[in-house]
Design a protein around this nucleic acid. Structure first.
Lengths: 108, 108
DNA sequence: GTCACATGTCAACTAATGTTGACACATGAC
DNA sequence: GTCATGTGTCAACATTAGTTGACATGTGAC
């Protein structure tokens, strides 16, 4: 195995920040962290938001690697898409940002 | 002295995330972290963005407590507004978010 | 006075994001 | 078959954020 620490690119950092910069998405992460894994419709009911909206937010969180999904079949045959939070750990400091900003791909 | 650690509110966390969720603002923090304090017009030239735009971004960063400003007079009498980065340190994890999300003030 | 530099602010436009409601599809229970 | 549950997607609208250019202010040097 490699002992190499994954170096966060500026774009990845930005994607993670963008994913967390939203009260709904903070609550989604919080709900999954506290209550454990859950499937979309149930989570929408728990949080009191519409399913399409939750779906889009989960999509953004998953694209940033902060949550993961797994499609399963319930005993009565329904397809349930379970989401769980990744145990990410992001150390945000001026030094880290200075490093990550060097690999930002924003032309102008 | 108190050994109390400052507890981050959900709204403060969200403000800091919102402040960093932008390529320009990441570059601003990076420039101040690497090159030290700087005043608005010079920083705008260094980064290649317009001064009004930089002003708005600095405003948002300062509101989140990530940078601080200090108005000074140059030797030839010009008023220079110097900005410096705060040495913030934000440990972003599911557990922290679960805690902070409890104090989010977003009604609906 | 004019010029060059610094500061900030404002309205107006563009671009990105969030949100909703309706749609289509599949399954088991009745 | 119908109903209730689950899945996803899409166009359309509402809201927010980003960006620009012009404006007003101040100073010292010439």
């Amino acid at each position: 195995m490699t002992s190499e620490t994954h170096v966060l690119s500026g774009d990845d950092l930005l994607a993670q920040l963008a994913a967390l910069d939203n009260p709904h998405r903070l609550r989604i992460v919080a709900a999954l962290a506290s209550g454990g894994r859950n499937y979309v419709s149930q989570l929408a009911r728990d949080l009191g938001i519409s399913r399409p909206l939750l779906h889009l937010h989960l999509q953004k969180l998953e694209a940033a690697g902060l949550v993961s999904s797994q499609l399963e079949l319930s005993q009565d045959g329904k397809a349930l898409n379970y989401f769980a939070v990744t145990d990410f750990k992001l150390e945000l400091s001026p030094a880290l940002i200075a490093t990550a900003a060097q690999t930002l791909s924003t032309p102008e």
